[in-house]
Amino acid sequence: MWALDNPDGRHKVTQSFIDEWNAENPDIQVKFEAIPADQYMGEKLSAAMMSGTGPDIFFLSRGDFLKFVESGLVHPLDEWFTEERRQDFLPLVLEAVTYQGKIMTYPMEMDPVALFYDKQVFAENNLQPPQTWDELVDIAVKLTTKDRYGIYLAP
């Protein structure tokens, strides 16, 4: 099992589940490896998966999900998603990890999404909050300077 190294302590919880699994399943042991961010996607995970030497379980961001699924590097998990287990998830959460009718990954987290803007900066630049994606892009370009990003989207 590979994951992006994360300093927030999340892996302590992951490791506790792995320890419990390993204690209950001596014939099927999980080895966990947290890989530094600057190596995870390109140097380690993508290369290992393409060469057939990747881990059985790995963490992906939503942005990389389709690349791996469409390349055939992810096995559908439907057989483990009983009707009872499906009830633990909001329908939209399961939809987000479903591809061509198959559940392709276990949803690990769900983030709230919000867009904040600086009213003063908008007023100084005679701008109104965007109503469409195209307007958002145009405003982001207009507000970008050598000292400021016009928009920041956390990955």
Results as ranks from 00 to 15, higher is better:
W2R: 09
W2G: 05
A3I: 02
A3M: 02
N6C: 03
G9P: 04
G9M: 03
R10G: 06
K12G: 09
T14N: 13
Q15E: 08
D19P: 01
N22Y: 08
A23R: 14
A23Q: 12
N25K: 08
N25G: 04
N25A: 02
I28E: 13
Q29M: 06
Q29S: 01
F32R: 07
I35V: 10
I35Q: 01
P36R: 03
Y40D: 03
M41P: 06
G42Q: 01
G42D: 00
L45S: 00
S46F: 08
A47L: 06
A48P: 01
G52L: 05
T53A: 10
T53D: 10
G54F: 05
G54D: 06
P55I: 04
P55T: 04
I57P: 03
I57N: 09
F58P: 00
F59M: 12
D64M: 14
K67F: 13
F68P: 05
L73G: 09
L73N: 09
V74W: 08
P76Y: 12
L77S: 09
D78T: 10
E79S: 14
E79H: 14
W80R: 15
W80L: 15
F81T: 01
T82P: 04
E83F: 04
E84S: 11
E84D: 12
Q87S: 10
D88I: 07
D88S: 11
V93K: 13
V93A: 13
